[in-house]
């Protein structure tokens, strides 16, 4: 009989389709693994952004992964609340992001200053300089902004804090 803990471990094999260095557990996308009343398993996932096009792929990958481990029946349930936040990303996940050239989210999502234009320093993932400039609030995916480093002159993605 498979345990909930084993399912969590299996789920770490599911990569985030847009950031393959991270798995969906490290990303905080998997919120809960539970049994339904008929003895089947339910995996609860939450989208990073409402319009995240990767959700469908993540759902299919979770089903495939657990099917590969002969676990069934499985249902994947998507829920909005509580809303996903970058605060759920582990320190290890942030370090992996940085090593791939994506600046990890700075500060806490509870920061309200953002609305009227107060911005935090974003550190270049290559040379660690804080002399960086935002090029665009929106980058290659919904969860990232586009920055450039004024020190080493390289452009880079910044994982937005939400």
């Amino acid at each position: 009989m498979v345990s909930e803990q084993e399912i969590w471990t299996f789920l770490t094999e599911v990569e985030d389709p847009e950031i393959p260095v991270l798995n969906v557990v490290e990303m905080g996308i998997v919120r809960e693994v539970r049994k339904d009343e008929n003895g089947g398993w339910q995996v609860v996932i939450t989208p990073t952004y409402s319009g995240c096009p990767a959700m469908k792929a993540i759902e299919e990958d979770v089903l495939q992964c657990l099917a590969d481990h002969q676990i069934e029946p499985i249902a994947v349930i998507s829920q909005l609340s509580p809303p996903w936040t970058t605060d759920w990303m582990t320190a290890e996940a942030r370090e992996k992001l940085r090593q791939t050239g994506i600046a990890p989210p700075e500060g806490s999502s509870a920061d309200k200053g953002l609305l009227m234009g107060v911005r935090r320093d974003v550190r270049c993932p290559r040379c660690s300089s804080v002399q960086t400039t935002m090029v665009s609030q929106f980058g290659s995916t919904a969860c990232k902004a586009l920055y450039k480093c004024d020190q080493c002159l390289e452009p880079f993605d910044y994982f937005k804090c939400i």
Partner: peptide, 24 residues
């Protein structure tokens, strides 16, 4: 309404960025 509260909390995070983009 619980669903609408969850919807609002989720969407607010996104709309903050939309607002900032257009304001800039």
């Amino acid at each position: 309404d619980e669903f609408l509260r969850g919807f609002a909390a989720k969407s607010l995070k996104e709309v903050r960025y939309h607002f900032q983009h257009s304001r800039d």
